[in-house]
């Protein structure tokens, strides 16, 4: 912690944050029965991945002044944000449809296709 405070923020630290967000998102997806909760978990997962992209694409964080991904990292992050927005819109529409049909948003009830 003190290393960080002393100005030694590195790519790895960003990766740790991303890992925490990713794990939280996955747990969120695994635990939430509310479909919107699952959706939020997905957002978290995507955000964790985005942090990694930005970290790898940042020249500021790069140890030798040359980032791993360069501009590509940020472009990827932008696309991920866009796709997340799109995904959120579709997922919400599906959720509403499910709610209309089953009068619930409990994903445990959505098992009509079980084996």
């Amino acid at each position: 912690m003190t290393f960080v405070l002393c100005g030694v923020v590195s790519v790895s630290h960003y990766l740790v944050v991303g890992a925490v967000l990713f794990t939280c998102g996955v747990v969120c997806m695994a635990l939430k029965r509310n479909a919107l909760g699952v959706l939020m978990g997905i957002e978290l997962v995507l955000n964790g991945a985005n942090i990694n992209f930005v970290a790898f694409g940042s020249e500021y964080l790069a140890g030798d002044g040359r980032s791993v991904l360069g501009l590509d990292g940020e472009v990827m992050a932008l696309f991920v944000i866009l796709l997340a927005a799109a995904e959120a819109a579709v997922a919400l529409a599906i959720t509403l449809n499910f709610y209309n049909n089953h009068a619930t948003v409990d994903v445990d009830r959505a098992d009509d296709l079980h084996g």
Partner: peptide, 10 residues
């Protein structure tokens, strides 16, 4: 293996 396909998202 059919039973694995529970349909349970979580």
């Amino acid at each position: 293996l059919k039973r694995v396909q529970t349909g349970n998202l979580r």
